[in-house]
């Protein structure tokens, strides 16, 4: 009964037991949470290698990467000039064209409109670039937002050139 004096004295044994049981419960819950994270087969597809050799100047291809479309365009010199001639102060989300490419003439970007996630269509819009039909966002030849509700430029994924004609996205 000495241990039980009105419950005012905290008992080390009970605290230790409760702490260990708490740690055990948390450890048991973690696998149930972590299983929702991307699995190994999903992560294995987190990088995509693309062969660029068959894409001719002025052509675009769309590849899937992490479940999203990626636009790869071999831009024409005019498109590149047009993009680089645009003063930054005309841009809603100022970014120079050079910052958006790794190697000319390749423009690689995620084809998801930064407004609400639609896929813009190519060779369209007021700026010779991309146009999102959902809510009328216009992107220029560098994929930068010029007009419409979208807040940001089309994002550039991480990618590297493995050789002259192969890139690895992701």
């Amino acid at each position: 009964m000495a241990d039980d004096d009105g419950g005012s004295r905290r008992d080390f044994l009970y605290i230790a037991t409760g702490a260990v049981a708490g740690v055990g419960t948390l450890a048991a819950v973690w696998p149930l949470i972590d299983q929702m994270n991307p699995s190994k087969d999903v992560l294995a597809l987190a990088t995509t290698e693309v062969d660029l050799s068959s894409i001719e100047e002025g052509q675009s291809v769309t590849v899937m990467w992490r479940g999203k479309p990626v636009f790869i365009r071999a831009r024409t010199p005019q498109e590149i000039d047009e993009a680089r001639a645009t003063p930054l102060d005309q841009l809603k989300d100022p970014q120079s064209d050079q910052d958006r490419v790794v190697k000319d003439p390749w423009l690689v970007m995620v084809g998801v409109c930064t407004h609400l996630g639609c896929v813009p269509v190519g060779d369209d819009g007021d700026y010779d670039g991309w146009y999102c039909p959902c809510h009328g966002s216009h992107y220029d030849t560098s994929g930068r937002i010029r007009k419409g509700p979208a807040p940001e430029n089309l994002p550039i994924p991480e990618y590297v050139f493995l050789d002259d004609t192969t890139i690895r996205i992701g």
Binding site: L32, D34, Q35, S39, K40
Partner: peptide, 25 residues
């Protein structure tokens, strides 16, 4: 149930995916 596929062509493979690829599956 978040990972399992109830279809005769995919059920067995989906269970193997749970065993091999899903975190703590």
């Amino acid at each position: 149930a978040m990972h399992y596929t109830p279809h005769v062509d995919m059920a067995f493979a989906s269970v193997e995916r749970i065993m091999r690829d899903v975190n703590f599956g």
